[in-house]
């Protein structure tokens, strides 16, 4: 189901320009227009000035191209009292993205590897729970996780503070209360948890498709769990790692729910900040700035999508289980 074979299987069209063919292309062109319309509207709106927006209509191309809305969206747009634009959200998203992608893929690939090559009693049961867990609505688990993260912070605090005398001696800043809830690490944890079902499935299936002889030969040569993982599995599985990275980067970048719940305003990701900018009630609505901000937020996944092509399709087809 994952890979599309190259040859279409439908009936062969007989004549190049039959009436049916013209209809077919006509319909497809119209459909394409519908799908492209919002992107077009975003681009043209973001390049117009406000007076032009008020006078003209949605689809008219800009008479005077201006990049001011882009500049404003990036560095001046306001959310509440902060008026430093979307750039803050962008960098927050980057800071959330990098550790989340690395940790979630690292953890899930090792789990998939253990599930394929080092089965132990009950491992398949845990995996089944994991897969069906992917269907549980996040809303069911969100609050207990908030409590878990709070408690984890309380748990870590004395351990961290036990290092304080040493830190003071070194002239470093001592630890205060450690908070995991509302911090970057808490959000990374949540992304790792909820990325696990699909990623583990992805890696498990891929590792299972590798020839078993490789694993056996490495075992005979005395390689252990981690040796085989790092020296054989990872180098042989680069394509699936790329698919996983695409999946996670777009997924985490587009996340809104976890960002809004598990972080605080200073480290809100870009999607949350974008929503706050556009849907803020105070001030005059600047549609051009709003559309520039929207486009900026959509740019990262769009670039990944257009650059990765078939790999993206593979990623989402695998992500089908997650829905």
């Amino acid at each position: 189901m994952v890979d599309l074979p190259m040859e279409p299987s439908g009936p062969k069209p007989r004549v190049r320009l039959s009436r049916a063919n013209i209809m077919l292309y006509g319909i497809l062109l119209l459909v394409s227009l519908y799908y492209l319309l919002p992107l077009y509207v975003m681009v043209v709106t973001s390049l117009k000035g406000m007076p032009e927006i008020r006078m003209g209509h949605l689809f008219s191309p800009p008479m005077e191209v201006t990049f001011e809305p882009w500049v404003k969206a990036w560095s001046e747009a306001c959310t509440g009292i902060n008026c430093d634009g979307l750039s803050r959200g962008f960098w927050n998203s980057v800071r959330i993205l990098i550790p989340s992608v690395l940790v979630s893929i690292g953890v899930a690939s090792v789990s998939g590897y253990a599930l394929t090559n080092w089965r132990f009693k009950g491992s398949e049961t845990f995996f089944t729970i994991l897969i069906f867990g992917a269907f549980i609505p996040y809303q069911v688990m969100i609050y207990p996780i908030v409590i878990l993260l709070r408690e984890a912070g309380d748990l870590v605090t004395p351990i961290a503070q036990s290092a304080n005398p040493a830190l003071e001696l070194l002239g470093l800043e001592p630890f205060g209360k450690v908070r995991i809830m509302g911090s970057l690490s808490g959000l990374v944890f949540v992304h790792t948890i909820f990325g696990m079902p699909i990623l583990t499935l992805l890696f498990r299936n891929y590792f299972a498709s590798l020839p078993d002889e490789l694993f056996k030969a490495a075992r005979v040569d005395g390689a252990g769990f981690w040796g085989i993982y790092f020296r054989i599995m990872v180098p042989m599985s680069l394509p699936i790692f790329v698919v996983a990275i695409i999946l996670q980067v777009t997924g985490i970048w587009n996340d809104f729910l976890f960002g809004v719940i598990y972080t605080k305003p200073e480290i809100y990701p870009m999607t949350v900040q974008l929503n706050n900018i556009v849907n803020s009630v105070q001030g005059v609505k600047e549609y051009n700035v709003n559309m520039a901000a929207t486009l900026l937020t959509g740019l990262v996944p769009l670039i990944i999508y257009f650059a990765s092509g078939k790999l993206f399709v593979r990623g989402i087809a695998a992500g089908a289980v997650k829905g």
């Binding site: 509207v41 975003m42 777009t250 587009n254 809104f256 929503n275 959509g298 990944i304 993206f312």
Partner: peptide, 15 residues
């Protein structure tokens, strides 16, 4: 036809 799927619901909703 597939590119909107790469965009977040926030972007979709706002457009």
């Amino acid at each position: 036809i597939l590119y909107p799927f790469a965009l977040s619901f926030i972007v979709t909703g706002l457009v």
